[in-house]
Design a protein around this nucleic acid. Structure first.
Lengths: 229, 229
DNA sequence: TCAAAAGTGTTAAGTTTACACCCATGA
DNA sequence: TCATGGGTGTAAACTTAACACTTTTGA
């Protein structure tokens, strides 16, 4: 019977699958995107999104994590699949399906990495160059999804270090939503967010007076989520 | 040079791609999902989502439309890709990637179709049976996406006939958001929605008194969207 | 004549926005 | 001592939610 099944689909075409990434970080008050200078093929020398082929016997999300680790050195990263694109004519003589993910990383973790590829560069969202294929459109789709997700859950905190100041969080939120937010109203909202807790630590790096450091309490957040309905 | 490129990826594994659908309609005050009784293979006799293989030289969205037309007879349907799943072990000896879409159709259009497959059945969302693989999870993901999208744009109207009563729209919205909504407040909101216009037609089928029929003005909607920023 | 769905405004509660000054410190 | 970012409360505007009765008409 299984042979019948195999016979049923044996004539269908086979596709190459690539996982590709919009890797976001946050610095200089801007959301940044990691691009790679293509080092082979017909797009050699142009900026592209980091990507790689999915291997045999590799679960899709594992594949995504492996590829991200290879491109950034980072593990345990927040990733989310956005969608897949099938009309990419990136490679001649081969149908390629690109499964696009976005990743949110803390730039400090990235900078501490020793094995970063040297053909990569961060671009502020507003300064991403015009690229081949639908890459710019794909970035837009990832940005849209990321914005939506950060409104729903506090995943944007993955862009900050574990301890962050109110100012950093404020600037991050403004960068994500793309509009200024009143400082006092913002403080009020954060103080009411049960899952963001003030620590007794003080940041003396970014200001003379020193600013309170906050952190995200994952446990509290999950507990609340479970009991809220 | 292109040969180098081909050489570069010629050893990567190839995958079969299926497009699969969560087809939504609306009747009996419930969102309904179309399931298909599998007629071959190891899942024979069980309910699955409508799906089919993507063919060579077929753009992904075209493929999706072709497959939907084959399963429902309907063209010009609202569809949206949700995401793709790579860990589906549906077929032995083959890696299959399932690209999932959802579709919103007007049940009246569907019922008018002559060439419906006879191994299909509508299930109210709450009564979808337990299925193999991740199919239930996939439906949940499609429902979530559809809910989100209907909050953002009036795509839910694709579930209604071109002319609809306030009552139908009200029940639809309640079914989508899963909570009752006050009738008077609802009327107010719809009356303020510039893109839904009252016609001078009266529906005498669903009530004795007769109810005003409304319609969606796509032109007005698009015009507003273009000029709103 | 009555059952069944259509239609219609007002008020209270809650949420969001706007707004300006003093504080602590290192250079 | 002054330049820099840190920290704080109140009132108005707006949005959302709660609420009940009259109308029409076919059976």
């Amino acid at each position: 019977m299984e042979q019948d099944v195999n016979a049923y689909f044996k004539d269908f075409p086979r596709f190459l699958i690539v996982d590709c990434y919009v890797v976001f970080s946050f610095f200089n008050d801007s959301i940044q995107v990691l691009l790679v200078k293509q080092d082979h093929g017909s797009s050699k020398g142009t900026w592209v999104l980091p990507y790689d082929f999915v291997l045999e016997n590799e679960d899709m999300d594992n594949s995504a994590r492996r590829i991200l680790a290879a491109k950034t050195g980072l593990v345990d990263t927040y990733i989310e699949q956005v969608r897949c694109y099938g009309d990419t004519d990136c490679y001649p003589n081969a149908r390629v399906i690109a499964v696009m993910y976005y990743a949110l990383i803390n730039i400090e973790d990235y900078n501490e990495q020793k094995n970063k590829p040297d053909n990569t560069q961060w671009f502020p969202l507003a300064e991403v160059p015009q690229m081949k294929y639908d890459l710019n459109e794909m970035i837009r789709a990832a940005v849209t999804r990321m914005k939506y997700r950060t409104m729903e859950k506090p995943v944007g905190l993955n862009l900050l270090p574990p301890l962050f100041t109110m100012h950093q969080l404020h600037k991050l939120v403004e960068a994500i939503i793309g509009k200024p937010r009143d400082k006092r109203n913002f403080h009020k909202i954060v103080e009411e967010a049960y899952y963001i807790e003030k620590t007794d630590k003080i940041d003396k790096v970014h200001s003379k007076r020193g600013a309170a450091l906050y952190r995200f309490n994952q446990k509290l957040y999950e507990h609340y989520m479970k009991h809220k309905l």
